[in-house]
């Protein structure tokens, strides 16, 4: 666990969403009170999000709305479907601005980076309870895989991903990846991993005889490498500010 006593992580929760179609908060409060009367236990201290999308930017008194919800023993947490102006007002009232899940449109998007599951839970008739669960999925880009030797004068760049080479990298050859580099052969040329700033990137090779290795801009030339795992199978990584070479096999 963390030494600081806290850890920050993203997670999805089930929230009830109240769809408001009038700016008259007293009307909203009354209608809601009627609903709650049908299932008071279910709503007790329930977190709730107010969706104001159907108001199309009409001014809402978020302070009053917040108080109204609290008076009904609900916990107002945020607002969704707000215009930019409404967002400012909601924040001023101490409410979080939530991103409303889009309906249906997600299906047609190629390679979504955010998966939105929308579950309708028919708890009570006519109270629409939406359960939007947002799961951040890191975009998956398959590693670039080459079954060849990278010869002197050749350059290979694996953009946004890892590079796997079944073969060797010759003197004067250069392999670059935004991720890690795996070489199933000798590395005699240059290998540059984490090229766009990933300090966790590593370089693996079967036989280390490199002219230069670099991870996120920190580099060693063959001069330094000759003192660290030269002509051995190794993994080069960034330990803080310093590169290090670890043996791949015992």
């Amino acid at each position: 666990m963390s030494q600081t006593g806290i850890e920050l992580k993203g997670s999805g929760f089930t929230l009830s969403v109240l769809h408001i179609s009038t700016t008259d908060i007293s009307v909203v409060r009354e209608a809601l009170a009627n609903k709650i009367a049908q299932a008071p236990k279910f709503f007790e201290m329930a977190p709730i999000v107010a969706n104001v999308e159907s108001l199309k930017g009409d001014e809402v008194d978020f302070h009053t709305l917040k108080n109204a919800l609290q008076s009904l023993n609900l916990v107002p947490v945020g607002v969704s479907g707000a215009t930019d102006e409404q967002k400012l007002q909601a924040k001023a009232a101490g409410l979080a601005v939530m991103v409303a899940p889009k309906t249906n449109s997600t299906e047609n998007q190629p390679q979504p980076t955010t998966v939105i599951e929308r579950v309708e839970v028919p708890v009570i008739e006519r109270v629409k309870v939406e359960v939007p669960v947002e799961v951040k999925v890191p975009e998956y880009i398959p590693a670039m895989q080459l079954k060849q030797n990278v010869r002197s004068g050749q350059q290979v760049y694996a953009k946004d991903t890892d590079l796997v080479i079944i073969g060797s990298v010759g003197n004067g050859g250069e392999v670059i990846a935004d991720g890690s580099i795996h070489i199933y052969g000798a590395l005699r040329g240059r290998a540059i991993a984490g090229a766009q700033g990933d300090s966790q990137a590593k370089i693996y090779c079967y036989n280390l005889q490199a002219e230069l290795v670099s991870i996120n801009g920190t580099y060693w030339t063959s001069e330094q490498l000759q003192k660290h795992g030269w002509q051995q199978a190794g993994c080069i990584e960034l330990d803080g500010e310093q590169l290090s070479v670890k043996a791949l096999t015992e």
Binding site: Q148, N149, V150, R151, S152, G153, Q154, G173
Partner: peptide
């Protein structure tokens, strides 16, 4: 040897 490596790269591309 290094120049030959270079030529091999050119042959392949």
């Amino acid at each position: 040897v290094r120049d030959s490596d270079r030529i091999l790269g050119i042959l392949a591309s």
